[in-house]
Design a protein around this nucleic acid. Structure first.
Lengths: 156, 156
DNA sequence: TCATTTTCCATGTAGATACATATTATGTAT
DNA sequence: ATACATAATATGTATCTACATGGAAAATGA
């Protein structure tokens, strides 16, 4: 307590700031989670190279393939993506004819998404490659750990 | 094993694809790491609202404050960011006069970064808020887990 | 010293992400 | 039935991210 006061009086904000900054860099869940995500995504992108799908696109297409209720809102919810983000991410898949988006007859505000034949084939081809990549990745870190993190982060 | 063969012969690629897709969605380290990062970042952004720094900017400024050797290349290395990504992320901080980037006299290819007085004050103000946010976040997930993940992902 | 290579950084291009806002369609209350 | 509120999605704007490439400076080699 006294030390804290004296530090303030000593006017060495630079040094304190550097120390605090180092603590943040070391322990910040935000920074570290993004760092891990960048590295893992880069790794998967390398492994998936040549398949015509990035790791992010593969994930999104799997979400679409896995979904029964397939309106954009439900998909955004399940994906943990902003509705507007999803809207734009879908656009690139749509442009490549991997998915289709159409009106829902019973409610013209809604849109439904599904994989095209091309999209289904592309996803089907990517999955075994993804499996190998995931196994390889598991040598360095446990996917269940990442899964656990994703689950826990839902509460935030 | 027999079942696997018979499934292939049964030609139900749709159903198999859906099952595979669900497995991917559940377990993919890429998808899950990005999902967790999105959620954690969104949480921190909410907690930091009004400070004039996003979670990403706070992290980057802390990296700068923590760094002794402060050329862009070294910073990119330490940050685990692409050099080009770093270059652009710095630009927004520079525009707000939170950092300064100048030539290194002894090697005109290099640039050095540091916090301005404004930047240092902004960071100093943000740190206690970040600490509170990190503590609050720790109720839902362990930051050490995220840290561990970041460390392990370096090997990929 | 001059040509070549290498290093460092910026920029072109493009996808991923989110907040605020606009748009259109549906639901509701009078 | 009309006016208003609500819901689903798209769009404007901005940051984050990375790959490929370009430009300038330094290092290297002959």
């Amino acid at each position: 307590m006294y030390m804290h006061i004296s530090m303030n009086l000593m006017k060495q904000p630079k040094k304190t700031l550097r120390t605090d900054a180092r603590a943040l860099v070391e322990s910040c869940a935000g920074w570290n989670s993004r760092l891990a995500a960048r590295r893992i995504t880069a790794f998967l992108d390398r492994e998936l190279a040549g398949l015509g799908l990035t790791a992010a696109q593969l994930g999104l297409m799997a979400q679409i393939a896995a979904l029964a209720d397939d309106t954009l809102g439900a998909l955004a919810q399940r994906s943990g993506l902003e509705q507007s983000t999803l809207s734009r991410n879908l656009r690139t898949l749509e442009r490549e004819r991997l998915i289709e988006i159409t009106l829902v007859e019973t409610d013209l505000r809604r849109r439904a998404v599904w994989l095209t034949e091309t999209g289904a084939r592309r996803l089907e081809a990517a999955i075994p490659v993804w499996r190998k990549a995931q196994d390889k990745l598991a040598h360095s870190l446990a996917p269940e750990l990442v899964r656990e993190l994703a689950v826990q982060s839902e509460a935030l």
